[in-house]
Nucleic acid binder design. Sequence first.
RNA 1: UCCCCAGUAGCUCAGCUGGUUAGAGCGGGUGACUGUUAAUCACUAGGUCCGCGGUUCGAGUCCGUGCUGGGGAGCCA
Length: 466
Amino acid sequence: MSFTTIKSALTGKPGIGSEITVKGWVRTRRDSKAGFSFINVHDGSCFDAIQVVAPGELPNYADEVQKLTTGCAVECTGTLVESGGRGQKYEIQGTEVKVIGWVEDPETYPIQPKRHTFEFLREVAHLRPRTNTFGAITRVRHAAAQAIHRYFSERGYYWINTPIITSSDAEGAGDMFRVSTLDLANLPRNEKGDVDYSRDFFGKETFLTVSGQLNVEGYCLALSNVYTFGPTFRAENSNTSRHLAEFWMVEPEIAFADLEHLADVAEEFLKYIFAAVLEECPDDMAFFEQRIEPQAINRLRSFIEKDFVRLNYEEAIEILKQADVSFEYPAEWGLDLQTEHERYLTENHFNAPVVVMNYPTEIKAFYMRLSDDERTVAALDVLAPGIGEIIGGSQREERLDILERRMDELDLDKEHYQWYLDLRRYGTVPHAGFGLGFERLVNYITGMTNIRDVIPYPRVPGKADF
RNA sequence: UCCCCAGUAGCUCAGCUGGUUAGAGCGGGUGACUGUUAAUCACUAGGUCCGCGGUUCGAGUCCGUGCUGGGGAGCCA
């Protein structure tokens, strides 16, 4: 029953001359009437497929081996030998090729040994992991996720599993998906004619979370260094290559930290992840460099080597005003930076990752810490060449009176946030945190251009297939 | 949500200013040949030209509309 992964076989670990069995899926078959066939088998354990040489003497050679097509599942037993061909060090001299699962109709099997468009592969999202590209994305995504957990764990952060169903209403992070068990065709109403959510499953209105931040702050003000890493939902009608309705977000929250410290963590954190992926996925990254984005490896290396540029929003606006290019939208103090502005800063002006800090109070969320002159809040965005905003974060407002005042100004229902305000009533401390869109990170690492291709089953407006 | 582009074979595409029977490569089938690397060569099957309506003697081609996909913008991670 035991068998060898292709990764292990291709490193030669079992030893030349040893008898091994591999199991996987056929990528290509090339054969010779004169005597044998070459079967390339992959199992996802590594980028490369292994070549199995199937001799014509096999009892099922004519009946089965020669009928193998791309996608068939096979179990191949044989001797691990040095390869006689170019392109690989080892191969299997087969003694048995067992077909585990046929491809029902080879003509319409969608995954062919050729280049497909990513648009087409999205329509067969359940089969696309069998391609080189999506296998590589999957391994890199895994390596990046593991590196994130490792980074935090090594530094004493605890992973907090904040709730996915939440009752707190929108805090500015975006539109929410409603969670309800009410019968949509027969909604209960109160005297005023409004929907009576007291009869709903939770006895109140509930939604899918847009961020674990508020919840994780509670754990931050107890365990000091914490983070969330989980699915997040936005019901916004965003139709771009950078947005998903369901995506994964990493949100560290650090007690006794200010904005400068947060920027330090963001920089060290990103560099750590990139270094880990380069180290652990060299074959996959070589593939991205060769077929997807020629700079895939170089830009990660230079990202790791360079210091991030840090500047205040105010300085950023000055740079943009003096820029020798015409922007579609004006760069003016008090207005948010547009995509074109972010690109100019990070790709043209600095050609490096840029941390923009201290944004105008009016354009940022209520929980961000107000500066002494009250014109700005302690917020930061990390902008990266090629993707724009990858991290958004802030030092949180830890002073109860100011936080309440800000909520009043923004007309937020303080009743909903009593528990959040408690955190400022009982042992409040300065603290700060950021959010990182995990898919945006994977997009950047791999050089993929559409975020729908770096999450297994993308959810976007009008689409929730599979 | 707004602006732009596209939809032709299982897949990737060509098809000019409207004109007879819509083509190629890959993939499939058959055969040849070969330690081959997305092998090669020959033959072969395979099409509601996205749907609907219109203009025209004639529409894959032009117009309208719907649907689907993509790119960009806004919102943001």
